[in-house]
Amino acid sequence: MDLRLDELSVVTDGRTLVRALSLEVAEGQVVGLVGPNGSGKSTALRCVYRALRPSSGTVWLGEQDLTRLPLRHSARTVAAMTQDGGVDFDFTVEEVVALGRAPHLRGNQALSGRERELCERAMDQLDIGHLAQRGVLTLSGGERQRVLLARALVQEPKILVLDEPTNHLDVRHQVDLLSLLRGSGLTVLVVLHDLNLAAAACDRLGVLSQGRLVASGAPAEVLTTQLVGDVFGVRASVVPHPLTGDPQLLYSLNSTC
């Protein structure tokens, strides 16, 4: 299923956080949203996983208007890995992952055998199977991050949105996670801070600056010395990755803004 943001705007307290953002994520594509802090990336994402109602514009899931769907209904199609990793009580890892089934279950209905297997598989995929009985509050930031992604996968979504999923992760788990996203076959919209990882992992990139989409396209088209200088205010040289050919940025210190 494809995901389209159509002229999406978010205004709160008279401040425009996202301004007429249009972006399309084709089925099975991984699209990255990049931009400096406060450029509206997370806000745009929140409209997709329905923590926020857009002030105007629409989010389309295929042919369906997201804002018209009941929350539970859209949660069966769109899963999110958000930035709030905090959990109030000491649930076990297994319990948190199983909560990913919540939109599919009525009341306290127990998980079926198939759903249990789904949880096991997701935990193994994210390399947290050995933590199943651990309390989530005792985990490291990176481990918790992987628990949250496992929970999102268990939701069996068609579309996955992730807000800085590589936060707290060590290099191996960053690479693992992005490989998993690429191999998942899901339609993915992901906010990333690391432009090099974004270039390697995404089919297309959207660059946000002050709530506006200032560039979009294949990483090689978007990530230019000019754009990185304009949007992020840093000097960077762009070189092709020696193995994959993806554009990679080499930053120089004491940049002239």
């Binding site: 929140r46 996983y49 329905r50 923590a51 009941p70 929350l71 539970r72 209904h73 859209s74 949660a75 069966r76 769109v78 899963a79 999110a80 958000t82 930035q83 709030d84 990793g85 905090g86 959990v87 109030d88 009580f89 649930f91 319990e95 948190v96 909560l99 990913g100 919540a102 939109p103 279950l105 009341g107 306290n108 949250l148 999102a152 939701q155």
Partner: peptide, 20 residues
């Protein structure tokens, strides 16, 4: 509403993404 309270304990953003 036990499971709803479980989901709420994950934070508001996550709860919304889980249909609560």
């Amino acid at each position: 509403y036990g499971r709803v309270m479980d989901v709420l304990a994950l934070g508001d953003e996550t709860a919304a993404s889980l249909g609560v």
